[in-house]
Simulated scan of single mutants.
Amino acid sequence: MRGREWRRAVGLAVGAVLATGSLVACSTGTQAAPVVDVTGVQGQAPTVTYVAPLDVGHTYRRTIWAGTGPELVDGGPVLLDFWLENATDASVVKETYTDSPATRTLSEEDLGVDLYQSLRGQRVGARVLQVAPGASSGSTTYPTVTVLDVLPLRADGQAVAPVPDLPAVALADDGAPSITPSSAPAPTTLVAQPLKKGAGAQVGAQDVVTFQYAGFAWTTGEEFDSSWARGAPVSHSLLDLSQAFTEGLVEQTVGSQIELVVPPTYPLGVTAGAELSGQTVVFVVDILATRTPTQKAAG
């Protein structure tokens, strides 16, 4: 299971590498913009082509394609896939496409000035190119080429008609769910009902899944756990999650929102707390990304 330590390691790696370039965005100068070609499709790692070594005098940035989702909020969370190369020899320094996306805060403090400027004003779904010079001191003295994909922080699939007798789910402006309890008897078997159906990749049995979730008591609708309340999605191997999540999320698709109704015959883990022992609970899960571990060996 990947927790705060893993996310901190990713954050430090990105920050150390990306925040050490030029401290101004697209500073003026006579040097022509470096020729860097970015190809590929949404949801997959980009192909970056240029003649190395690149001569980079100041930071350049270009939107490869614009996003059509919500605009990023200053100081708010942002979920990123990125591909980072050393522009001296075109070697890959770090990338997330064979692992899990990185959750960051849209601020200069967290991202560094260059990366913050590249992402500010972008929308979910955008792909952005940044080419930056190396710093005169620090851990990154070489020029870098970075491609960033801005991923959604909430399910963006097509709405599915609600099922009678299940708790009704309402969404706040930021996507955080709440439920209205159902007066119907609680199901005695696990229910995994899509509320939205995404068009992305299908979750495999051994995948590392990035998702938002909130858990509620069936009888009262009271929330007992939420990634939304903590301000960031989580990434876990499906093998490390509770049996209900393992069974309920496998073969679902990225972009989907799933209502999981978990009867008391399923173990819940420590997040539910002893007070919910023997009770039916409801999870609302937004699937944001899924990665198969074997992709890393093949990449």
Results as ranks from 00 to 15, higher is better:
44 Q>V: 09
45 A>F: 01
45 A>H: 04
45 A>D: 00
46 P>I: 03
47 T>P: 00
47 T>M: 03
48 V>D: 01
48 V>R: 01
49 T>G: 04
50 Y>R: 05
50 Y>S: 00
51 V>W: 05
53 P>S: 05
57 G>K: 06
58 H>K: 05
60 Y>K: 01
60 Y>G: 03
61 R>T: 02
61 R>A: 05
62 R>H: 11
62 R>N: 09
62 R>S: 10
63 T>M: 08
64 I>V: 15
65 W>I: 08
65 W>Y: 15
67 G>C: 05
67 G>D: 00
68 T>D: 11
68 T>C: 02
69 G>D: 05
70 P>E: 06
70 P>V: 04
71 E>G: 02
75 G>Q: 08
75 G>H: 06
77 P>I: 13
79 L>K: 04
79 L>T: 04
80 L>C: 01
80 L>N: 07
81 D>N: 15
81 D>T: 01
82 F>A: 07
83 W>I: 00
84 L>Q: 04
84 L>I: 04
85 E>G: 00
85 E>H: 09
86 N>I: 06
88 T>K: 02
88 T>S: 14
90 A>C: 07
90 A>W: 02
91 S>G: 13
93 V>Q: 14
94 K>V: 12
95 E>T: 03
95 E>N: 06
95 E>C: 03
96 T>E: 10
96 T>Y: 12
97 Y>I: 13
97 Y>C: 03
97 Y>S: 06
97 Y>G: 04
98 T>K: 07
98 T>E: 14
100 S>C: 11
101 P>T: 03
102 A>W: 15
103 T>F: 02
105 T>H: 10
105 T>N: 03
107 S>C: 00
109 E>M: 01
109 E>A: 14
112 G>M: 05
113 V>M: 06
114 D>E: 13
115 L>F: 12
116 Y>D: 09
117 Q>C: 15
117 Q>E: 14
117 Q>V: 12
118 S>H: 03
118 S>T: 05
119 L>Y: 07
119 L>D: 03
121 G>K: 07
121 G>I: 12
122 Q>Y: 07
123 R>Y: 07
124 V>I: 03
124 V>E: 10
124 V>L: 07
125 G>N: 08
127 R>Q: 13
128 V>I: 15
128 V>F: 00
128 V>D: 00
129 L>K: 02
130 Q>K: 12
130 Q>A: 13
130 Q>N: 09
133 P>I: 02
133 P>S: 05
134 G>K: 04
135 A>C: 05
139 S>V: 15
142 Y>R: 13
142 Y>N: 08
142 Y>S: 02
142 Y>F: 15
143 P>Q: 13
145 V>T: 15
146 T>R: 09
146 T>L: 15
146 T>N: 07
149 D>C: 09
149 D>A: 02
150 V>H: 08
151 L>E: 09
151 L>N: 09
151 L>I: 02
151 L>H: 05
153 L>A: 00
153 L>P: 02
156 D>E: 15
156 D>P: 04
157 G>D: 08
157 G>S: 00
159 A>W: 10
162 P>M: 08
163 V>S: 11
165 D>S: 13
167 P>K: 03
168 A>L: 12
168 A>D: 10
169 V>H: 14
169 V>M: 07
170 A>L: 01
170 A>P: 00
174 D>W: 13
174 D>T: 06
176 A>C: 01
178 S>K: 11
179 I>Y: 08
181 P>R: 10
183 S>E: 10
183 S>T: 12
186 A>R: 12
187 P>E: 01
187 P>N: 08
